[in-house]
Design a protein around this nucleic acid. Structure first.
Length: 439
RNA sequence: UCCCCGGUAGCUCAAUGGUAGAGCAUUCGGCUGUUAACCGAAGGGUUGCAAGUUCGAAUCUUGCCCGGGGAGCCA
């Protein structure tokens, strides 16, 4: 007697390896085109989309099951895979069996159509919007960027040591922090950076990085801002500004090249200009703040020495180069209190920013930290920061202080640049923005 | 906080002072190679809210609400 074997369950991304075989897909009905007694359902399973074809004459049962079925109904379908130049993707399933797992009711059709929608509408339905191939591709690229970033840091000898999310006080003032009710009457704040904690951990472990969410209550409403975003923050003892610029360029180029290598299909779905990403290899250009001001003035920008750069200035600077540019040695006055001064010119801070190409703005900010106890106390006082809250941080300078440096890489800005998205909100599963926390 | 733009059918939009429309979606009918399929028909509206001007307001005025983009601040 014959043994009936069940067809293998396969993912659509691997369907090309099963040409000529009968396979089963578990997914959703992405679209249904009907042409008389012939149906062209398009299935998606999260790894891709695949067109099916069903003839009423040859497969009446499968035809009836799919006929009139609503978009995004969940289905398990079986059929033979064959090359088909007329089908998107080059392969097609001749559907022989259909199991409708979850039918979408006609009275409540799936709201997101295969057409343009407004931002407000899509953001209110982010829980459904993520199903579209474009959004799913972005989220896969995000995952690859995280994997590659951690792979690089680990290979460089950095130990993952995460910073807390509840913090007792502001790093740099409380106005941009989210305050939360802690136990009893205590107040706590959501972290705006793991850096200060990473400095402590770097003195314990040598080279560390943290990777987690950070929170900013700034009322920024731009395509570059979220209230909750993820940062990868390395910190290394006995490290200097130049070490961090080399690390940053290595990290960013490794992330970009890993995405190009491992998520090419997704970049193609996004219609990203891949050669532009392939060019993102070390060395990245390094220019001083002085150079940057000169470049801006040459281009007719009214920037003066001592000004911080806004979005326009960043766009002009980054557009001069085909890969990220690092601007270093800013005036100390416009940088954070903990930045080490340049020993050659004390009005400068040993900090740097990395600006992504194509106007995506600052993706890395960092530099060398003050190692002198006396100077750090002086800077705390100059900035009117509460010394009591920073006693543990001052301890790092009391007990075996060393030169050390680090930076923070904004994940979403980096991924938005890699994906070429119009807005940073598309590169996080559920974006948190000022005035928008649903769903 | 400030500046600019927007809000009309479930969605995307049109209608600039004179009867509120189209495409998509939904329902019904047709179509054996579709490509956001196509063709025909039907149902679907307190034009964000409130007040004002006017014979008449989606349209003009004022206030409010909501959203978007930018500045500041930042990654």
């Amino acid at each position: 007697m014959r043994v009936m074997t069940k067809p293998a369950i396969v993912n659509i991304e691997h369907v090309g390896q099963h040409a000529g075989e009968e396979v089963t897909l578990q997914g959703w009905l992405y679209n249904l085109r009907e042409s008389g007694k012939l149906l062209f359902p398009i299935f998606r399973d999260g790894t891709g989309i695949l067109q099916g074809v069903v003839s009423q004459k040859e497969q009446p049962t499968a035809f009836e099951a799919l006929h009139g079925l609503g978009q995004e109904s969940s289905v398990i379908v079986t059929g033979k895979i064959r090359p088909e130049p007329r089908a998107p993707g080059g392969f097609e399933m001749g559907v022989t069996h259909v199991e409708v797992v979850g039918r979408v009711k006609e009275s409540e059709p799936y709201p997101i159509q295969l057409k343009e929608h407004g931002v407000d509408f899509l953001l209110d339905r982010r829980h459904l919007w993520v199903r579209t191939p474009r959004q799913a591709s972005i989220l896969r690229i995000r995952a690859e960027a995280i994997r590659a970033g951690r792979e690089f840091m680990d290979a460089q000898g950095y130990t993952l040591a995460d910073a807390p999310i509840f913090t007792p006080a502001a790093c740099e003032g409380t106005t941009t922090l989210f305050e939360v009710q802690y136990v009893d009457d205590q107040k706590a704040y959501l972290t705006q950076s793991g850096q200060l904690y990473s400095e402590a951990l770097a003195a314990a472990l040598g080279k560390v990085y943290c990777f987690g969410p950070t929170f900013r209550a700034e009322k920024s409403k731009t395509r570059r801002h979220l209230t909750e975003f993820w940062m990868l923050e390395p910190e290394a003892s006995y490290a200097h500004l130049e070490d961090m610029m080399a690390l940053g360029e290595g990290l960013v180029s490794h992330i970009v090249q890993s995405v190009v290598r491992n998520r090419r299909r997704e970049l193609e779905t996004l219609k990203r200009d891949i050669p532009k990403l392939e060019a993102v290899l070390p060395p990245f250009p390094r220019i001083t703040y002085d150079d940057a001001v000169a470049i801006l003035q040459q281009r007719g920008n009214p920037a003066k020495w001592g000004d911080d750069f806004g979005g326009d200035e960043e766009t002009i600077l980054s557009s001069q180069f085909d890969r990220p540019v690092m601007v270093h040695r800013y005036p100390a006055a416009i940088k954070a209190f903990y930045m080490e001064p340049d020993p050659l010119r004390s009005e400068l801070a040993l900090g740097f920013d990395m600006l992504a190409p194509e106007g995506y703005g600052e993706i890395i900010g960092g530099g060398e930290r003050i190692s002198s106890y006396d100077l750090l106390v002086k800077r705390l006082r100059e900035n009117n920061l509460p010394e009591e809250a920073f006693q543990w941080y001052l301890d790092l300078r009391r007990y075996g202080s060393v030169p050390h440096a680090g930076f923070g890489m904004g994940l979403e800005r980096t991924v938005a640049w890699i994906c070429g998205t119009e807005h940073i909100r598309e590169v996080v599963p559920f974006p948190r923005m000022i005035y928008r926390v649903y769903p």
